[in-house]
Structures are given as C-alpha cells and as structure tokens.
Design a protein around this nucleic acid. Structure first.
Lengths: 190, 190
DNA sequence: ACCTGAACACCGTTCAAGT
DNA sequence: ACCTGAACACCGTTCAAGT
C-alpha cells in the first residue's frame, strides 16, 4: 500500500542550501537535511543518490539563479555599461548568497562536478558582452579574463583576504574600469 | 618516565598535506594522518589543537612555499617582464600542488583562517611589481586586480571550468598581456 | 612527556521490515 | 511507493591509564 511522499526533491535541495548558507558546506549533513524536511536520513536516498549529488544540485540551483540575475542585468546594449552592470550584479549575488556562491567553482571530488552546461548558461550574458567589447576573435579569451577576475575577487573578498586596509569597493570599481579599457579592440594597434 | 616523541609537528603537517594533495581536503582525517606518521589519532592532539588547526597549518605551509617561489620569480627589474614571470610562476605552483593551492582562499569556518600576514608575505613581490607598473597611488588596487584575476583563473582551471574548448594557455597569456597594458600608468590620460 | 584503548556523539549509507 | 530502526564502518575528540 503506497504511502504519500512526505517531502520533495525541491524541499530537500532548499533545506540543503539553507544549511550551507547558514553554516557552510560541512553543516550540510544528511541527518540535518532530513530533520529540516521532517524525515529520517535514510529516506533522503529516495530523492538523491548520495550527499555528493545533493551538493551538486545545490550548486546547479545557485548557478541557475545567478544566470537569471545576470540575464536581467545586461540590458542597455552599450557593452561598457553592460559589463559594469554584470560585474556589480555578480558581486551583489555573492554578497547575498555567499555560501552558494562559494560553491560555484569550489574544488570538488571529480565524481560530482556540475554539468558544464549549468555554469555556461549562467555566464552566457557575459560572453555576449565581452564579444561586443573585444570583437568575436577574442571573445572567449576576454570573457575568461573578466570571469576569472570577478570570481577571484569575490572568492578573496568572501574569504576575508582583503581585511587589511584599503577600500574594497574602490578596488572592484578600479578593476572593472581597467579591464574594460584593456579589452576594447583598439581600431589600430601596433 | 618520559617517553620519546615518535613523530613531530612537521611530520604531521607533511602527512596532512600529502593526503590533501592525493585525495582532497575530505581525505585529511585525523585517523589517516595518525596512521601515516605511525601513531594513533589521539596522539595528534599533542601537536595540534584540532583538525581545523591542522588544515590551517597546511595552508600556511603552502603560502610560505608560494611566497618563496614568487620571490624567486621576479628578478629582471622590468615590471612588465616580472609581472609575466610572477603570473607564470603562480600557475606552475598551482599545477604542481593543486590541493594545497586550492586551500589558499578556500571558504573556511571563520575560526581557523590563516594569519593574514602569511598570505600577505607571499603576495608581496607582486605588490612591488604592480606598484612599479601602475604607480604608488594605485599599487594596492592594481595588485588586487592582478591577484584576483590570476587566482580566479587558476581556481576555475583546477575546477575544470575550462573543459569546453578553447586554448587555456592562450587565454592565460591573453590575460597577462591585457592586464599589463591596462595597469600601466599612461603619461597623459584625459 | 608522550602514547594508548575505550568511550561518546556524530557521520554516510545499506537494508530488511513496516505501512 | 515511501518511510523507518537497526546496523556497519568511519569520523573528531576527550580522558583515564599506561610507560
């Protein structure tokens, strides 16, 4: 006689994400997730193969949400303004969801990496903006340069690496400005 | 009656680091470290307060080693050449010790962050080079821009984020070149 | 002074048994 | 079809007892 489901995959992922956000990745335990959704730990294995898959699902959830944010941020059609808007949007996302953001390119056991497509989709608006800025031939390299800078900056900021003096906001704005200048395809360059 | 020490803090840290390098942070367990150095797990607490402190010691060990590598890399006195050499040196270090490198700015429970001084020392050669490149007023912002770019690039590379096509070496060289151009203080800028 | 086994609370995961 | 308690192997950590 079937018993009705007492939770759902979406509930489980949301519970896992809130645990990560509150206390970091090591706080995401099967037992705590189970308690949060009102079930015992073994039942989670009806929704998820193992803890690793659950971490990956949280990662993908965050990547999808970041993609939505970025798509909504690049709207002016002016690549310089769009690039600055994208950079500010990803930083706002990282500040709002530091736990989830810190997962995005975290060192992971090879087994449970996210589908590459998940992150690629999130980054797509940035790829289009840098293509407009640097030209199609260098679009990929330019996008990787910008993504690497922004991600490195945010990882370091979240890790507290900038605690010693200086104005972090100013350093971020400086990076945006200089990178934008650097990527613009000059009409004539020796 | 005192018994002679059967291991040492240096041994313990080295064992921990080799476990991380081989199988990632979650493979660093007190029991495995103990087995590696030929002792039982409770004995480790004579050398180290807890697992967190051991992780921090591995991090600091890696930071010190990276500092040595960077100090040896910036030698020409030409800031453009030195910056390129520093960027190549940090990438070589990350490839040689991906586990240790991945720890450097990893999201950590606030309790056991490294002493800020440890990482600052490692980055000092880069700060001096960017100061020469961008001028003293913007040295800090310039250094943060370069460190953020390099670190973000390497984190993403190690996480396998660049698996889909493109020439990763070329993207790194592109980043070095464009960042160098971007940071140079133009004699006259509107 | 260092090392150990035993103990405790907690993990992830499997599985037979319940409904 | 989903949920559960019991079980297993593993964790980090403490502590009294050994030398």
């Amino acid at each position: 006689m079937p018993t009705p489901a007492r939770t759902s995959l979406a509930d489980v992922v949301a519970a896992a994400r809130s645990l990560i956000e509150a206390d970091g990745l090591e706080a995401l335990t099967m037992q705590r997730v189970a308690a949060t959704v009102g079930v015992r730990a073994p039942s989670l294995y009806k929704r998820v193969r193992n803890r690793g898959e659950l971490v990956r699902l949280v990662m993908q959830d965050a990547a999808r949400e970041l993609g939505d944010v970025l798509s909504a941020a690049a709207t002016t059609g002016d690549p310089r303004r769009d690039l600055a808007a994208l950079a500010r949007a990803v930083r706002a996302f990282a500040h709002a969801h530091p736990g989830a953001y810190g997962l995005l390119f975290a060192p992971m056991p090879d087994a449970w990496r996210p589908e590459p497509a998940a992150l690629d989709a999130a980054i797509d608006p940035l790829l289009r903006t840098t293509a407009a800025l640097a030209g199609p031939d260098e679009a990929l390299e330019a996008a990787r340069t910008v993504v690497a800078w922004a991600h490195g900056f945010l990882v370091m900021e979240l890790a507290g690496a900038f605690r010693l003096g200086g104005d972090v906001d100013r350093a971020y704005a400086y990076g945006i400005k200089r990178l934008t200048e650097a990527l613009v395809r000059e009409p004539s360059r020796k």
